[in-house]
Design a binder for these strands. Sequence first.
DNA 1: CCTGAATATGTAATCGGTTACATATGAGGG
DNA 2: CCCTCATATGTAACCGATTACATATTCAGG
Lengths: 328, 328
Amino acid sequence: MATIRDVARKAGVSVATVSRALNDKGYVHEDTRKAINEAIKELNYKPNEVARSLYKKKSRLIGLLLPDIRNPFFPELARGVEDIMQESGYRLIIGNADEKPEKENDYIQTFIQNNVIGIISASHTEKKHYKHLTCPVVFLDRTSEPFPSVFADGYSGGKMAVREIIRRGSKRITLLRGPIEVKTAQDRFKGALDELCRANVDFNVMTMASFAYHDASKCAKEIFEKFPDTDGVIASNDIAAAAILHEAIRKGKLIPNDLQIIGFDDIPLSGLLFPPLSTIKQPAYEMGREAAKLLIKLINNEPIQNQMIQMPVTFIERQTTRKVEENG
Amino acid sequence: MATIRDVARKAGVSVATVSRALNDKGYVHEDTRKAINEAIKELNYKPNEVARSLYKKKSRLIGLLLPDIRNPFFPELARGVEDIMQESGYRLIIGNADEKPEKENDYIQTFIQNNVIGIISASHTEKKHYKHLTCPVVFLDRTSEPFPSVFADGYSGGKMAVREIIRRGSKRITLLRGPIEVKTAQDRFKGALDELCRANVDFNVMTMASFAYHDASKCAKEIFEKFPDTDGVIASNDIAAAAILHEAIRKGKLIPNDLQIIGFDDIPLSGLLFPPLSTIKQPAYEMGREAAKLLIKLINNEPIQNQMIQMPVTFIERQTTRKVEENG
DNA sequence: CCTGAATATGTAATCGGTTACATATGAGGG
DNA sequence: CCCTCATATGTAACCGATTACATATTCAGG
């Protein structure tokens, strides 16, 4: 690999001049610049980011912390982040925290040790890991008070799901509650619960241990045993909804006539289920983009009007809910 | 952030001694070591990876290049890579090449500029990008001749799919062919084609423009128009299979009685479809792990017995194929 | 008591950039 | 003609680690 010294030698100038030419800082004569550019081309010189980063104490890397790459919701977020960062010349170090505080902390340390210029975290289990960081941090999907965040309006989403399922005729509703430790899941739950209390319907609540399909599946079986007359399920996410849907079909229920189901997230899977799943959509890709834009503003010290960006959710009507016209 | 100099000062020794203590190199007196460790703890010192990397010309970062994080197959690979790398103390920079040669090259440059110690690429569009790299490269899922690779046995997979579908009674088979530029898709196709030729059945071939659901969906409609009497479809991947399945159900076909479908990949989605999709499984997570292990060996200059690791595929029998007993 | 190896530690160069500061030249104003 | 300022470039310190080499001490063996 050619270094800046090689370029300087070839162009017959000092390294300082080359550096100035590279960064468009200070004065460089037009002829000199031309000579330098030629030398750069001939030597196929690329500046060493590591050296630059060491002096500047800032790299062009962004740390992105996800709880689980395999949950399709997160790659969607990641893709949004990646697209914006790529455009702006930043690169991503991605970490998989696996919902484990030590792994999370390990990655944060790695990020810091590599001079990342900012961090986006969709996985904060413990606030203290972030408290003393000197680089800007944006939380994505999950929130943590003093920090800027981008998240979907889960509370409204929960309410929306209940309103839609009731409007379409469910009378005995089962509400799935996501893992207690996942705050966004609790927001949805809270919204749904409030709306259920306001409405004139019977309902049950069932809490899931995790978002894993396996747990959801177990939960599904339990629902049909304990509450066989349920005619509407609000799931805590689409994976859970898929499990319920599966189990219902196995039991010979007609969807949506015997049972309506509404999920949450709108992952790519949802439209491919049969019947396609009605769900509350979180704009994951857009959320990723917004988080990236917010972080870039923070990095550039631009003024922020709003550092808690709440994204709207929407009801995606597919075929696990009845058509509104079909019922009263 | 505390530096090695702060530690040295606090412990009353020179930086060289601290460095030796940190890296377990050369002689360090037990008492000195203790004092240093204390200083490190008190100052909460973490070595600066950037400085280390500058001197050593090697970081602890691995570049992982994916064609598309949103295709669930790739996060699965990534997770396998990540788990192994994490264990061995390496970290990942992930890039999304989007099947675009310039983006691919951009990322490779970034990797190099950040002193990555190795690269795993699941996205080689042009061999020349990799030719002159000085760090080890492993290809994952796709192969490129002189380079070490980990990939699934697509050819056998294709044969296997045909054998299984015929064994279960399909007589008029439609074979979907994946995008020409994706070599692994062509391997599957080739395997399936060879086996179809050998068998005593009618068949058609239809080529897909891309693996996107949208294209697959269009393709599905076309199949049922052009070849209405098809009673078995070998899809080029599970996304395509899902599209076919969807369309078939919409047309009122009974699956698997009227039509059998076999996919390829076994992404998490596949088991959640209705009916659950029979498919040829690629061990994606394992492939990621193997690629990571192979790269680590290359990094450590360990002897490699086999640098083309072909992973076996397996037939996952779910419910888009008939039970073997049910037919002759 | 002397010598050489093992142990223990320090000094300073180095990695490849950036930049503060010094220096040099030429143009324009008084 | 001198002074000042804009332009152009070079010198060397610096970022925070690693390590080659030098130096100092201790101890065993002859």
